[in-house]
Design a binder for these strands. Sequence first.
DNA 1: CTGAAAGCGCTAACAA
DNA 2: TTGTTAGCGCTTTCAG
Lengths: 383, 383
Amino acid sequence: MSQQSSTAPGPDGHGDRQCDRSGQRRATVVDVAQRAGVSTATVSRVMNRNYPVAAATRERVEAAMRELGYVVNAHARALAGTSARTVGIIVSELIDPFYAYIARGVEREATDGDRLCLVCCTQGDPQRELAFIELMHERRADAVVLVGGSVEDRAYKAELARRARELDAGGSKLVLCGRPSLGDGVPTVGVEYDNEGGAFAITDHLITQGHERILYLGGPPGLSTARDRLAGHRRALELRGIARDRELEQPGAFSRAFGYRRMTELLREGLEFTAVFAANDIVAAGAAQALEEAGVRIPLDMSLVGYDDIPVAQDLRPRLTTVRIPLEEMGRQAVRVALNGGDEDDWRAPTTGTLRLGTHIVVRESVAAPRSTLPGSARPRRS
Amino acid sequence: MSQQSSTAPGPDGHGDRQCDRSGQRRATVVDVAQRAGVSTATVSRVMNRNYPVAAATRERVEAAMRELGYVVNAHARALAGTSARTVGIIVSELIDPFYAYIARGVEREATDGDRLCLVCCTQGDPQRELAFIELMHERRADAVVLVGGSVEDRAYKAELARRARELDAGGSKLVLCGRPSLGDGVPTVGVEYDNEGGAFAITDHLITQGHERILYLGGPPGLSTARDRLAGHRRALELRGIARDRELEQPGAFSRAFGYRRMTELLREGLEFTAVFAANDIVAAGAAQALEEAGVRIPLDMSLVGYDDIPVAQDLRPRLTTVRIPLEEMGRQAVRVALNGGDEDDWRAPTTGTLRLGTHIVVRESVAAPRSTLPGSARPRRS
DNA sequence: CTGAAAGCGCTAACAA
DNA sequence: TTGTTAGCGCTTTCAG
């Protein structure tokens, strides 16, 4: 306990406001106004530069602000009516380049629009996601960007829809970035990329090189992102008249560990295939390691492709042929679309609009024609 | 132009508050209180669970909140006295794993403490950094974490000190995470890692393997981080009685491109050395590529080490021996230290405290004894 | 061009 | 256990 046990403002009532532990209460508009000999309205006006103020007055006010070390209170400002100038972004993991690039786009676009960015990581937990949306709503974020694939759960989607409506009612927008819409009735905006098309294109690329037995590896079956990639893969197979083989579809985590482990197992089991389509570059990196350790050479003995085109694709040897997604651009568009959706002039602008960006394959060195069409050619050397 | 040219709230004045574009004004405590037949104070109490409320009352209030789709206004709350429950983090680049891992630590610790995280990227521009600190101060962040090396500019440091004082006066803290203190007079807290020590250790490791001509590559001379690493390197050399060779110190950007380019040039010029200490793993990756293209084998013809131990260190072949920094832990400690620094019970707690975490080398496969002690052994094959 | 005053939505004494 | 009420710091009509 300190010597002065009372926590009240002091025996002198509330007249003296200079006394504080830091010796100096934070300056407010009132202080600035007093010091400059003007009203608070004028102080506000010089800060916001939205009304004419005499040059002399302005200078006095600015001097006062400087001398007092005045820093506006964004909360008071937000309360008083202006927007909070904040956009929220929710990702599952910041250190995953897929999310990091999108986050970068969001952050830059936000900054360019004079806004600050609230960032949350769900670590893949849908419940956290919901909670974070709520928290951002409390902060009156101008937009909340939800990034990446989502689980296909009805109850969860219903909750999401509720949050979307709440946000919308308050003038904010929920942005679905790289995930499917919640349905026509739900007021959200979306930015997608041609996920299915990219998968189609790269599988087709493999087929064109002569591959028929293509292993599809990784991608959580419950995740929308993974589902679409697999769909594109299947469509390409079908279109080229290649029968689907259940053994060649090996979904799993979007992780390096999964790619490594499953590939190792498959190689050991002797499953036959001449090419691998990893559901993303991370999985591809794991698969590449397994291949390397098994003595299978890429692309000589085995072709390998990934998805996303994150930096690791260029770090691998050989460099990975993969599908490029305009990650950063998606982030930028996410906030743009959310902030212009509520345009003043078109009163009845469609509240649910989805922007769709293209994907394309990036050909590097991890694909070649199959060594031979004879089965078994891709088998690892037995030690 | 729309049909209605007036932007005023409408002909009906401001009496009616139910009329809005979204058809429904946001619910407030007053609405909830009315609906539940209680006072706003009670509503506040059920939200904050910090005062006893009769179970029945509580239920009525909660029902009302649900029915109205009530979401507290964090700004009003912050204005009314409670903290904004926000911590800010400023990094130069989110997609750089070094920063991303620290950011992850900050985000997690913030979340664990029921706070949200404001994130800004300076892209290496000190002016932006200053501006962002200000913006976070306006938002009344409980702490502002500044991550990574800083430029050694006097005017800039003075500005930083001013901001630190302002923040401190308002009860917040500026946290220097992985960068040097601003001096004793300035109220900041810090979390560092043993940067110099790590560099010393890994250079010593190289020397122990028999290397004497070690190339130090990358690291902007003006950046504190780079300065300390070079210092550690020199100290190890000196301690082992190896004369410093100016040609072997090749500072530069912390980038893959620099590592690649400079290494290519050096190899072409025929500079003699048997090992490379890249100022960070990214530079090492670039150097590795240059080495590979020149036909120089790692570690047979040349040893290579990096710094940071980010994922790329494990993706390289051979895997990179490097210095591990407790990145995520630094982020966590940054917010912990900031939030406990202002403890109530020790009135005169040192306002400037620095926590120092250790580093250690991670030995992988990129180092071997030099092939021969004869000069020229590391030369690339001429094409 | 400037001032007075009414809130914005919430919390926290203080009183009951 | 609950209600009353006075702000928190800023913006914004509405009047000079």
